[in-house]
Design a protein around this nucleic acid. Structure first.
Lengths: 221, 221
DNA sequence: ACAAACCTTACGGGAAACCGTAGCAGCGCT
DNA sequence: AGCGCTGCTACGGTTTCCCGTAAGGTTTGT
């Protein structure tokens, strides 16, 4: 079993149950923090004293509060931690289910495992830790099937910029000015109209209102 | 302390930490289930055997899996449970933060407490249970703030009908026909325009797109 | 280098939405 | 009944949006 484990998780109850699950697995004294900055500090100190952590378990999204943090999310924490301790094993435990996000964690952050907060997350945590102990990667099974979006349009940066401006209340005819100021090309009014029409056509919509509601639903804004 | 507590929560780890928190508070043997239908069955049996539960703690949203459920969410569970056992105390423990949703739980379902899954949820759970023991209502403080800053407009049925039609893609000029067919008054085009303008003015918006996004955020559609 | 294909942008006519005004019906009050 | 208040509806002018067309630029292939 891993000797030194660090948990970074802001939700108190989730943090508790992670501790309990790890203890059941035979971990001696899983340590835990509620903020990303604390996590990095502890990792740094552990490296300095010659007793580095063997495993970091972290959430992806941390809620802001009065404690202003330099590191605001799990991905940044992992990146910073690996700069201090490149060999650190990392397991992400989060509610995120978008494959694009999770894929990039494996590819760019080189995480060792991902378990989604879901029905059987306790079991999967145990399996994940067993796999990582054997130097294998782990992905909780509820995500392997999770590809269901079919007629979905993949939104470009331009698309998101346009939609965001609409949500801000910018009249369509003024959006070109915004795009030019932010060096987003194309920026012509016709291009904006064309882009909006394309999105609505792909998704089977006729009005902007539908598009806004859809984007809110899938969480891109 | 409550003698008999039932936990309905599908996430395994959350379920574990709820049990642990309750045990720390002196609850003897908190019982737990992972499905709403099971929860209702257990409540019915408890009533039949003359040893009803004192408190139901439930999540709001349950994930679907191969086990098809009649009751698919916490709100329905509470409604069904209160038909069986009207005096049952209920505490909702969920990640939901939309005030519209939570308000309706208190008003329509007459729940006794709401704790949001968030940073200090463990503490707040304890406070909630203490409050409910004293026959008081409880709402976790991270939500009281979110509500105050609201200069929110209270949406009438007409407002929601109009907005829903916009989200359906109905052109504004056609909405009067829909309202007439559904016997919603007023139904004139001018009234619709006036109503939309009122909503946007109160909320400081200028375009429909902003209004749609706002309504999605607070969860009225 | 040249042409073809593609993308971006500009322009104009028509439709929808926006906004102010005015007429009309319902309601309470004297 | 007569009056005034309120709220719903109808109408016209202005703005914005929608959509098709065409001109100017850029990339690709030969």
């Amino acid at each position: 079993m891993f000797k030194r484990i660090l948990i970074a998780e802001d939700h108190e109850t989730q943090n508790i149950s992670l501790q309990k699950t790890l203890t059941e697995l035979g971990a001696e004294k899983p340590e835990y923090v509620f903020y990303c900055d604390d996590a990095l500090t502890w990792i740094k100190n552990a490296v300095k004293t010659g007793q580095p952590y063997d495993l970091l378990i972290t959430d992806l999204y941390f809620e802001e509060d009065h404690n202003r943090q330099k590191i605001t999310g799990g991905a940044e924490l992992i990146k910073a931690a690996k700069e201090v301790q490149p060999g650190l094993k990392t397991l992400v435990f989060s509610g995120e289910s978008k494959t694009a996000v999770i894929d990039s964690l494996f590819k760019e952050m080189h995480i060792d495992g991902y378990v989604r907060k879901a029905r059987h997350d306790g079991q999967y945590l145990k399996l994940a830790i067993a796999a990582i102990l054997n130097h294998k990667k782990y992905l909780s099974p509820d995500l392997k099937l999770a590809r269901k979006e079919n007629n979905s349009h993949d939104f470009s940066d331009l698309d998101i910029a346009i939609i965001s401006q609409l949500v801000e209340g910018t009249p369509q005819k003024n959006i070109p000015y915004y795009l030019q100021e932010n060096n987003i090309k194309p920026s012509g009014l016709s291009s904006i109209e064309k882009r909006l029409n394309l999105m609505k056509e792909v998704l089977g919509f006729s009005k902007n209102e539908q598009l806004i509601a859809y984007c809110k639903d899938i969480g891109i804004i």
